[in-house]
């Protein structure tokens, strides 16, 4: 929380005794002269949904890619509360990172072409995740792919269709099934409904809500759409030009934004 003249500074957690699942500290990243992230810190507690808002270029997607270990910062520390992986995850080698991302972290991208092999079957796309994790039995692969697709509310009669033949909403469901197939501890969502028709967007958000409620998956969702963040997030982090300008409970950010930039953002929406 950025201290302002009209609000009191907040204390450290006192009642919440469970440590955060995700802790990022002091993450900075430059690309040439462009500052993508400047001293960003974030915590996400088990079962919580953190929303990250900001306009294009705010660094929100870069931060999510860091959480998915697709990029390393110039400086910074990243930890997940996993007993087998103490220490800074940014220090892991490529193989360990790939294993970690495949087995413990799920991600859904805005663009399904990034997350899916468009010419393979949908079930095959989901099964690929399970193969990386070491599953070899065809029946088990198919069974678990079916389960994940079903949980993502994908119509199972189309599980062997190729993503290229599917609608945008269905492609996102395949991505989601792939992301949750291994029951990750962390689900990352990068503009998961941007570009979908409003009615389809509502259905996909509802599926995400349902999954969150039934499985208590810890999620980080990035969106420029405040409506999406409002629907999904418990807490919200507002980013601008690579920095966190404000964070707070979702209802507080929307009803009593403190920072000038957040006020502009919220008022532009309402």
């Amino acid at each position: 929380m950025i201290a302002t003249e009209t609000a009191l500074a907040l204390q450290a957690p006192q009642l919440m005794t469970t440590p955060p699942l995700l802790t990022m500290t002091g993450v900075s990243r430059r690309y040439g002269d462009v500052v993508a992230l400047q001293d960003v810190s974030a915590m996400v507690y088990p079962g919580e949904v953190l929303g990250i808002v900001g306009e294009s270029g705010s660094g929100k997607s870069t931060l999510l890619r860091m959480m998915n270990l697709e990029d390393t910062p110039d400086t910074g520390d990243y930890r997940l509360a996993l007993p087998d992986l103490p220490g800074n995850l940014f220090d892991l080698d490529r193989f360990a990172r790939r294993m970690l991302c495949a087995t413990r972290i799920g991600i859904v991208y805005q663009n399904p072409h990034v997350g899916l092999l468009m010419q393979h079957t949908s079930s095959g796309n989901v099964a690929e995740r399970l193969l990386i994790a070491g599953e070899r039995s065809f029946a088990a692969l198919r069974g678990r792919a079916r389960e994940a697709l079903d949980a993502s509310e994908f119509p199972l009669e189309r599980m062997d269709a190729r993503p290229i033949e599917l609608s945008g909403g269905m492609q996102q469901r395949v991505q989601l099934a792939k992301a949750i197939a291994l029951e990750p501890v962390l689900l990352l969502l990068d503009e998961p409904t941007t570009g979908l028709d409003v009615s389809v967007q509502a259905l996909v958000l509802d599926t995400l809500k349902r999954l969150q409620r039934d499985r208590a998956i810890t999620m980080v969702i990035v969106s420029h759409d405040l409506g999406v963040i409002r629907t999904m997030a418990d807490r919200v982090m507002v980013m601008r030009r690579g920095r966190v300008v404000e964070q707070g409970l979702a209802d507080q950010i929307f009803q009593d934004p403190q920072h000038d930039y957040t006020q502009q953002l919220v008022h532009a929406k309402l």
Binding site: L10, Q247, G248
Partner: peptide, 20 residues
């Protein structure tokens, strides 16, 4: 006042408020 002692809701951490 909670079973674990008192907490100031004016300045409690967001996660504590969410928990309550």
């Amino acid at each position: 006042h909670t079973a674990e002692g008192r907490i100031d809701l004016a300045t409690a951490a967001d996660v504590d408020i969410a928990l309550l």
